[in-house]
Design a protein around this nucleic acid. Sequence first.
DNA 1: AGACAAACTTTACCCGTGTAAAAATACATA
DNA 2: TATGTATTTTTACACGGGTAAAGTTTGTCT
Lengths: 335, 335
Amino acid sequence: MAEFAIASGISRPTVSKYFNDPNSVRQSTRAQIEEALGRFDYQPNIYAVNQNRQMTKNIGIIVPYLADPFFAEMVRSIERRCIDAGFSPSLFSSHGEQVLENSILQSLRAMKPAGVLFAPLGRESDKSAIETFCSNVPTVLFDSNIEGMGEAFIGSDNHSFVSQTVDYLTRTGEAPAFLEMKHPANPNANKRRDAYLSVMKERQLEPHVLSIEGAGWGFEEIGRQGGLKILEEGRLPTNTILCSNDRLAIGFLAACFEKGIKVGRDDDCDMRVASHDDHPFSRFTCPSLTTAAHDYTSVSEYSVETLFRLIDSGGRLEKREEILFPAKLIMRESA
Amino acid sequence: MAEFAIASGISRPTVSKYFNDPNSVRQSTRAQIEEALGRFDYQPNIYAVNQNRQMTKNIGIIVPYLADPFFAEMVRSIERRCIDAGFSPSLFSSHGEQVLENSILQSLRAMKPAGVLFAPLGRESDKSAIETFCSNVPTVLFDSNIEGMGEAFIGSDNHSFVSQTVDYLTRTGEAPAFLEMKHPANPNANKRRDAYLSVMKERQLEPHVLSIEGAGWGFEEIGRQGGLKILEEGRLPTNTILCSNDRLAIGFLAACFEKGIKVGRDDDCDMRVASHDDHPFSRFTCPSLTTAAHDYTSVSEYSVETLFRLIDSGGRLEKREEILFPAKLIMRESA
DNA sequence: AGACAAACTTTACCCGTGTAAAAATACATA
DNA sequence: TATGTATTTTTACACGGGTAAAGTTTGTCT
């Protein structure tokens, strides 16, 4: 930087000031520096910069499973907002494994990020590791909540998701049975089942929960296997199935297809299937999937905004915030 | 670190040595440091560390489009291998945009990584920006090749993909027509079309290429729209369609379903559809998709190995290497 | 032109760690 | 126990830039 400062004819401290905020120097100085920048391709050493700054301009983003396009979409939106605000996002995926989640947490602490947007694994998470992390790094949880951890949680209102699908299905045909994994990884799944039970009770309908076996993050295959089993055993209490999430539904639809069961809302169909999430692929299932959509934009926007507010207020909020966005029903061909 | 050194009763330079390689200090010293590490939770400041090291332990990974589960899978495998080798992977997605790809390249240069694994956008890439980058940072290209850039390219052998699918389809029914995007983003697409033409010629069959409109990375929707148009116009030269890639095929299958066209290899089916990639979702289409599978493991393993070799040899290889892995035919229900 | 504030230059020290050189100590072997 | 080697300690400087203080220049306003 010293060399570059000489080359540009400006003193090093002023050049340093320029790189921290180009608007903090006089217009003519800025032009002079930028002219020199055109001649030499100098850029400050980020390691030296971050070592001296009290706080880096990095923001950590952790998602549980990047092979799920839902998270890929969230990430895209979040990264963009961080960059626009002058931060450098660093993306990490736990790939469904606690060990990885913990090691990400550790290396993220070493990065001293200004803040972290964190979608935890859920049931598989190491609560105490997360607690330690959150008390050291300004953290906003999203998508999947762990009570009391982080300064805020931004997610979707599972009750809104389920009540909309249940009401729609009930209005247009038989009341739905609820298909879910017996031991779901994601805490939203439990909230959705509870919401299903409560909504059915409110509407004075008899609930049916179909819990299928399977562990891990290969939801499609779990849904398919579980679906095949249910269909073979013929233990369907209704002709309408509401899946806990779209990936499960994708597998279930595959099972129906294999069994020659026609899914859809026409008279000649055997079964209706609906679900939750509006997964990027749910538009392309056969038939296309009726589902309750996340408000992707609001969740990502509000998560990032909350994190910025948290950073501005020094890493602590007055009290833990929890914001849930309602779903939007997407009616397609499957129900 | 000075404080921690005093607390552990070991001198600072030795502690520094320990953190660079725990085996480089005497066993008793190591034990003493690790005992102290249990009492205090000290970890070296990565920024100070990287500032002084001639080379960091970071490895950059760039993919063109993370919302495509194919890349998510690749990334998972690559990250794991990097971590196991003691490196810290940093993941970036260009999200299909040249501007983003260029800014990733720039911030990656500032990170002074030991090496970079780079799957470029392809047609949308800024060749000169990539050339500059590759001449400054040890880079291995994967998945999508740009002639002459980087020290090596590791990918899939498109000819192997196409010849296997064409031969299989021809052996079991009508010869296929080839469905592709008119202006594909990914260079593999062009290679596949050329391979289709050459294979058909070799087999003395008449080739039919169906080029559909559409730009960007929303392949499913492009395949669906293109499919609808083709089916409506009834301009199908054969009953067998070979799609350039699985995502296009997923959209095409949706179009067939919408049009009431039965896809599969049974006698009562109207059409056969096959494709290339073995996309993680192709198992769950209706019907399940017959496709030529990437050798995910080999590609990721060999990419990483090549990068390590490149790093060890100081950032240059004797000559640019190009390794292509053959496909494996996956026969499922669609053809 | 004079006065004042804003911006800049100069100088100097700081951050936390890598690393080299010389001296001191520990360990292993005969 | 003597000797040689492997480690460690001590001391010192380097890395590249943030930042504070004091003095100087520039620009603006009356």
